[in-house]
């Protein structure tokens, strides 16, 4: 029975990674850049919800909405101010800028909230679910997993069935050709950053609900793990990010449960290296299309 609760804990942790990895992979696909500040958007989301919940009368949905809006604005502004001017310059310059943005966000949070961890508000009173004699599943896990699955389905529908989704796919393959179709490339990139940042806000919410404490560096480890998950699933691939995130969470949690808590991160990275050795493009990485 403890295997099942470990597994469900892993699925829920993996959901958080998957939400972050989706943002990583969508931004990579469309802007061809690794947005290393993406993890810190989670932290901003969590702190915004924290602040809004304690100052706006405690309506959880208003607090979450504040987190979403703040992250979306932050993500879109970051792209416009920091990344867009560098479009077309060397990938290294963009990468270093993203790392700079990451430190900037952490420092601002440090100035406002200090370095001590803050307790994340209990926004919902979720009772654990008891199945049989000794299987207990945390309510947060079920909500995290359920909401993530709904979001994933929504993203898949958006990408594959809507006009803006097709525009995103077109821009990610060939910006110039997309522009020749009349696609507004800048707007499409902004929308992608907005979606990625909204997902990061949701991840920040679930992170806070799961771990109960947040601090200025809250985003960095999940950010790195989610980046690993995106590479693991095949960077640029949306289903890859979903599967990669979930698998990573499950591997991490099972390693913690059965092998060692200290080694669990090491095991996660070992699995990544193994996958990349066997399939360098990641689990669902795209084949390079053959030119005729």
């Amino acid at each position: 029975m403890s295997f099942i609760s470990n597994l469900i804990g892993g699925l829920s942790l993996g959901s958080i990674y998957a939400l972050i990895a989706l943002g990583y992979t969508m931004v990579y696909g469309i802007a061809k850049m690794l947005n290393f500040a993406h993890g810190d958007i989670i932290m901003v989301g969590a702190f915004t919800i924290f602040t809004a919940a304690s100052s706006l009368g405690g309506n959880p949905f208003v607090a979450i909405l504040c987190g979403l809006v703040t992250c979306v604005i932050l993500g879109v502004l970051t792209e416009k101010i920091a990344y867009k001017p560098l479009r077309g310059s060397s990938p290294l310059a963009v990468l270093i800028t993203a790392i700079g943005v990451s430190y900037f966000l952490q420092s601002v949070a440090l100035l406002i909230f200090g370095s001590t961890q803050r307790p994340f508000p209990k926004l919902f009173s979720l009772s654990p679910i008891r199945i049989g004699k000794d299987l207990v599943i945390k309510g947060e896990s079920i909500v995290t997993l359920g909401v993530t699955l709904v979001i994933m389905a929504g993203i898949m529908l958006l990408i594959n069935k809507t006009k803006i989704g097709k525009a995103m796919l077109a821009v990610s393959e060939d910006k110039g050709a997309a522009q020749l179709m009349g696609v507004n490339v800048n707007r499409t990139i902004s929308i992608t950053f907005a979606i990625g940042s909204a997902l990061a806000a949701v991840a920040g919410l679930f992170y806070g609900l799961t771990y109960n404490f947040i601090g200025p560096y809250t985003g960095s480890m999940p950010g790195i793990k989610a980046f690993v998950a995106a590479v693991f699933g095949g960077i640029g691939s949306i289903p890859g990010a979903m599967i990669g995130g979930i698998l990573l969470g499950v591997i991490e949690n099972l390693s913690k449960g059965y092998i060692s808590t200290e080694l669990s991160d090491g095991i996660v990275f070992a699995v990544l290296i193994l996958v990349l050795l066997i399939k360098p493009t990641g689990l669902l990485g795209k084949k390079i299309a053959e030119k005729v």
Partner: peptide, 23 residues
């Protein structure tokens, strides 16, 4: 119709045509 065609290689024929009518 650009040099080298630049069709969207990873999308379906239909999706390419629909993108042509994007506006």
């Amino acid at each position: 119709v650009p040099e080298g065609r630049r069709i969207f290689q990873q999308l379906s024929v239909y999706d390419n045509l629909r993108l042509g009518a994007y506006t």
